[in-house]
Amino acid sequence: MEKALEVRDLTVVYGGRAALEGAELELPRGAMLGVVGPNGGGKSTLLKAVLGIVPLARGEVRVLGRRLDRRSRRLVGYVPQREDVDWDFPVSAFDVVMMGRVPSMGLLRRPSERDRRLVWEALEAVGMAGLAGKRIGEFSGGQQQRIFLARALAQEAEVLLLDEPVSGVDAPSQHEIFDLLHRLQERGKTIVVTTHDLSCVAERFDLALLLNRRVIACGPPAEVFVPELLNETYQSHLMILRVGGRTVAVETDRPGGGGG
């Protein structure tokens, strides 16, 4: 089967400390992977390393069999963590989604018919076409995530990387976002989502990856969400509860606080 994403020995070092060490990952086309792990465990770093926007100490990334270069980068769509975005910027939802077309637009070119069509299709796919003229800061958190996802779709990305898309988003909007991701998966997109919501990964994802600096385990949620592996991932700051036949994990604050 064609591999959508191949990650070999991916290592990122910040100021002498490894934030990510020897990460390996293979995803077939159309897979939907949930990445979980403690705060500071390197989830964002993993996505940024795959995208090549942090310096790699070692490792290699292939997307649909290709190394990342200016062209193949367009195949990877990225929805950054909320905190990384300046929401007071004067841009409309339409403007944001049109940014997805910029990498393939020539310097002197204005947006073509096709660019506009892709933008509107993407806005429709995420259910935001009716509010395209509104300023990005005026949307709710869930709507903002959907608009950013639309930008990745307008870019014609095949692999979508979303960094905590449901953090700080109310429950109904979380469901809308996951429903939307499932629809995209059915269209053949490969999806990687970092999240704190283990039960959601257990219920809705085919694959889960436990990350704490290293990849602790990767596989179907039922196989990796077992007490030993979860304990190894979260160490002391996770309570594992067994409710009926299911394992439920509750993340607690770390005694000393802070990431690591």
Partner: peptide
């Protein structure tokens, strides 16, 4: 200006 990380990631 709006989103340097995503711009760099998409090849700008």
């Amino acid at each position: 200006a709006f989103d340097p990380a995503v711009a760099a990631a998409s090849g700008v």
